[in-house]
Simulated scan of single mutants.
Amino acid sequence: MKILITGADGFIGSHLLEQLIRLGYDVRSFVYYNSFNSWGWLDSFPADIKQSLDVFAGDIRDPHGVKEAMKGCDVVLHLASLIAIPYSYHSPDTYVDTNIKGTLNVLQAARELGVSKVVHTSTSEVYGTALYVPINEDHPMQGQSPYSASKIGADQMALSFHRSFETPVAVIRPFNTYGPRQSARAVIPTIITQLASGKEKIKLGALSPTRDFNYVKDTVSGFISIMNSEKSIGEVINIGSNYEISIGDTAKVITEVMGMQIEIETDEVRLRPEKSEVERLWADNTKAKELIGWTPAYGGIEGFKRGMKETADWFSDPINLSQYKADVYNI
């Protein structure tokens, strides 16, 4: 089985690629073309993994390139997207092109080439602020940012291909994934990189919203479980820890595992518009457990602390920390 991963150069994609290679899968990596010939996080892989890389540099917005990359592949794990919410306020048009039209390109190519499985990546942001908790897959979708609206469109495009053409599509809906290599635009790396850089006062946005944080190893195992399950075709499946924690309490956990004390300053630039802020996310992962046999290894407060310790240790390594700009707000 040959697997194509779009967005393989990113945070979750690089972890997924590395794990699949270690498990012996034959994987092709679709990375974003650039003149620096950078393969994103793939450039940091150990030598034994680099030897197994099959890299295709292109642009998910280009249907020809997407189809070329997919030739000879049996399964597509589609992760390529724009994900930063603040940047979606700034440049929403790019989110439509990348997230919706990019997904359409993947689906069209998969249909024409007869690919046996497409796993499309959704996000818990499509639910918006929880109307009830825990959030199951039947919860209404609410576009509270241009980003979440684009992902709702992409999800519906993927499911429409299954209904219209019997394209074998499954939709994975991870809740807030964290871990090594995550962009500093996300709250956990924002806190850790500021602390690891020696700051005692750190800048954050709203502290009251709650999230269901999912360690990246659990998200990766969710992808693999959905990929290998025939029962997942035509389904939307939450991948979450079923544990809710506020941003403020998350900061406290980070200071605990890092053995540091901090003072938090509210940075107005980091606050979302009032009606755009998602106030509460908490995953119901019953369907994942019952349908595909997936359970989080880092669930609950103890699992969260273990995942946070692994994350903080990685970011605190000077080599890794040097790749981040802790003094600059990354939208």
Rank of each mutant, 00 (worst) to 15 (best):
Y33C: 05
L20P: 02
D138S: 12
A170N: 09
M70F: 07
D59P: 03
S145F: 02
G13C: 03
E200M: 09
E125W: 13
N99V: 01
T6Y: 10
V278D: 08
K325N: 15
Y215C: 03
V115P: 03
A110T: 00
R111N: 06
L23N: 11
A57Y: 09
S29A: 14
V126K: 00
Y215R: 02
V236T: 15
I188F: 14
S316V: 04
N34K: 08
S225Q: 10
A206N: 14
A251F: 10
I331M: 08
R185I: 10
W282C: 07
D317C: 10
A326M: 03
S122I: 01
R211Q: 08
K289S: 14
V118T: 05
A84V: 00
F165N: 09
P209Y: 06
V31E: 04
Y147R: 00
T190N: 14
V115Y: 08
S322W: 13
N228S: 13
V55K: 10
H64F: 13
G153P: 01
H15P: 04
S35F: 13
Y324F: 14
E244H: 05
T193W: 07
L271P: 01
E125H: 14
T177K: 07
Q51F: 10
I85D: 01
K101G: 00
N136D: 15
G299N: 12
G198W: 07
I245T: 08
A154Y: 02
Q261E: 07
E279V: 02
G24V: 03
K50A: 12
D218M: 07
E166V: 11
M141Y: 11
K305L: 07
T190R: 15
T295P: 06
I202G: 06
M70E: 06
P134C: 09
S316M: 04
S44T: 15
S276C: 10
Q261A: 05
A80W: 01
H120Y: 12
N176R: 08
F56C: 06
S229D: 11
R181M: 15
L23T: 05
I226Q: 10
K71P: 05
E68H: 14
V257I: 09
P46H: 13
A47M: 10
Q182T: 02
T94P: 05
T190S: 14
V31D: 07
V66H: 07
A206V: 00
S208R: 11
D249C: 09
F30I: 00
D48Y: 15
E274T: 12
Y329I: 15
S116A: 13
I3L: 14
Y324C: 06
H162T: 09
Q108A: 04
E277Y: 02
T177I: 15
K67I: 04
S164D: 11
I100Y: 02
G300N: 05
D93T: 12
D43V: 03
A69I: 01
Y329Q: 05
V278P: 00
A288H: 11
D26P: 03
G13K: 00
V171A: 11
I49E: 14
V118K: 04
T190M: 15
I262Q: 09
F161N: 00
K151S: 02
T250S: 14
S225G: 13
G114I: 03
M260R: 12
S197I: 01
I237G: 15
V119A: 14
S316P: 05
T219Q: 10
K252C: 05
Y178Q: 03
I331Q: 08
V216I: 13
I100M: 07
Y32R: 15
L207N: 02
D155H: 06
G303L: 05
F56A: 06
I83Y: 12
E137G: 11
G153C: 04
A196G: 07
